[in-house]
Design a protein around this nucleic acid. Sequence first.
DNA 1: CCTACCGATCGGTAGG
DNA 2: CCTACCGATCGGTAGG
Lengths: 212, 212
Amino acid sequence: MTTTGPHGAAPRRRRGRPGYDQAAILRTAVELFNRKGYDATSMGDLARELGLTKPAIYHHVTSKEQLLGQALDDALDELTAVVTEAAEERAGRTAYERLREVVRHSVEVLVAHQPSVTLLLRVRGNSGVELEALDRRRRLDERLAALVADAAAEGALRADLPPPLVSRLLFGMVNSLVEWYRADGTYDPATVADAIATIAFDGLRPRGDQAS
Amino acid sequence: MTTTGPHGAAPRRRRGRPGYDQAAILRTAVELFNRKGYDATSMGDLARELGLTKPAIYHHVTSKEQLLGQALDDALDELTAVVTEAAEERAGRTAYERLREVVRHSVEVLVAHQPSVTLLLRVRGNSGVELEALDRRRRLDERLAALVADAAAEGALRADLPPPLVSRLLFGMVNSLVEWYRADGTYDPATVADAIATIAFDGLRPRGDQAS
DNA sequence: CCTACCGATCGGTAGG
DNA sequence: CCTACCGATCGGTAGG
């Protein structure tokens, strides 16, 4: 990213507009991809939003698909780290405790990386980049399902619900965050993480218990 | 679906190819829209899938957007019916009981109308049809939030969670169904509805007593 | 970083 | 003269 760069074509002298770097273009692109959908967003839309011409974008970026791939990698790297961390904490912690931690850390990642995670959760598999992302995501979901199964095997989860179904619904609730969460101060991430854990593990009904 | 139909233009004599009716084209279109995304699906794709030429489709359908609009209306009509039904049951039923019924009926609608509901949940607002659907959906979400607030005011839900947040998360879990549910016999709708209600209201941790 | 374009494909419609 | 379509192409725009 300094002097010459790998292409020999890196800008040595600055001329004209101050210019954007790749990261700034990526941020704007991901924001547009989420607002309109990836396919409905044209490189012309992105150029207008940036105040550049369409060809100018290709000075910083090789393709529209590359922008998508970088966002998906960001989301997947972060989510993978959450799951891997929990797996490495095996010593001295129950699966239930690790599952609760995964839920909490997942919420933190969803909030901190909401744009790229939102994009990930909407991928349909229309290209090589998308199919690769779907595959990585599927492997993540399998590791989460295994963690839920371990917690159930410990007896920490009620036995009358199939663990794979529980995993789907629990992380379905977590993932639904990206559809409505706004970092506008209404709820901070810890409040949301607590609410999800409370609903999922303890239930909405007041404790002390009664039946309908 | 019988003899003449409401338009007076029902086919009295068949000639040429057997032909598709509007409903069959809509079904195929919605399936494609969900598989590839609305914008990534061309009318040419739809024509190929149906074994027709592209102009032939326009014999039955006025535009691509009309197909989208019909699917979104189907989903919204069904979901509105669920919420309205619950509101009309006010007499003699608590808000908590009605909320549980809404969850159950929502799952049934999501399963029975999965293609159109899936489409609805992915709408971005890129056209007039989409903006209208988003608006109807927002009004539905408000009615659901009001029902959750009523249940909380009754004391049926724990007081330490903000009802608007509970509503988001509860129906986020319900809606996540469309991302993975397959009517392949793995889980029947009643099992899924029970699992969601159990997780949300009673929690995943084993209870001293469980009645439902 | 722009002007000027390309191969292809888009949603939709012409005449027959 | 109708229905159910076809081959071809419209004006614009996509990513590059």
